[in-house]
Simulated assay, not measured.
Amino acid sequence: MARLRVWDLPTRLLHWLLVIAVVGLIVTGNLGGAWMTSHFRLGYAVLALLLFRLAWGFVGGYWSRFSRFIYSPLTLLRYLRGQSMPEHELGHSPTAALSVFALLLVLSLQVVSGLLSDDEIAFTGPLSRFAPSEWVPLATAYHAEWGKLVLIGLVVLHLLAIGYYKWIRKTSLVAAMITGDKTTDLLQPASRDGLAQRVLALLLAIGCVAIAAFVASL
């Protein structure tokens, strides 16, 4: 048995920053009023984080790349039947991959719909004036109602999955996302997590923040 670096530092930081931002979005969105200023800022933060995750999915650590957890329907079916491969437990398993992509999709829809929203009182998304007039009320309704409920539902499912792995499978997903390492006897590549990767991540992060700031300035 040996320790294998699975989650590189940029991936771990992204994960925990996204957790904080999403919780903050849900809380500030429900409080409303003066809290909406913080809600907007957190929304731009999530936009930057999503852009970073998209880029990091192609150039990040071995186990963080999309190519490592895009599975065929047949692989998913076999996994659900209990015919999993050992390496599935190192990175994202087929079901965990579905959860990741679902969260990324729903968060993206929530951010985009927020940018297109207009409550016709005090808060207007920066992209609402560029969208067709019939899109704005639909985006507003989705963002404030259906989208929020779907996002909360996925977050709850994510927490239940963490609890299942912790208490039933006796595997701590949280610990691995803190340390970056998993103990295994498999001969699998480790994620690169040196200075070069971290400098690259910093440059990408700066670019993503700049894009989010530009959107906010529109």
Rank of each mutant, 00 (worst) to 15 (best):
G43M: 07
A122W: 11
W56M: 06
T184I: 06
A201C: 10
V100K: 04
H143P: 04
A122P: 02
L76V: 15
A34I: 08
L42W: 09
T28Q: 07
T95G: 04
D118C: 03
T124V: 15
L203F: 14
Y164V: 07
A144P: 00
L54F: 14
R53A: 10
V46M: 00
I20F: 15
A201S: 08
L90A: 05
W63A: 05
L200H: 08
G57F: 08
V106G: 03
T140C: 03
A190M: 08
G207A: 10
E87Y: 12
L25R: 06
T28W: 02
S93A: 13
A161P: 02
E87F: 11
M85Y: 11
A212S: 10
L186T: 02
Y79F: 15
A175T: 14
G24C: 12
L200T: 12
I206T: 14
V27P: 09
L49D: 02
V112R: 06
F101T: 04
L151N: 00
G32P: 05
P73R: 08
A97T: 11
A48P: 00
L25P: 01
V136Y: 00
A144E: 15
A97L: 12
L173R: 02
R5T: 11
I178C: 01
H39Y: 09
V111D: 02
K170F: 12
F123R: 03
G194K: 02
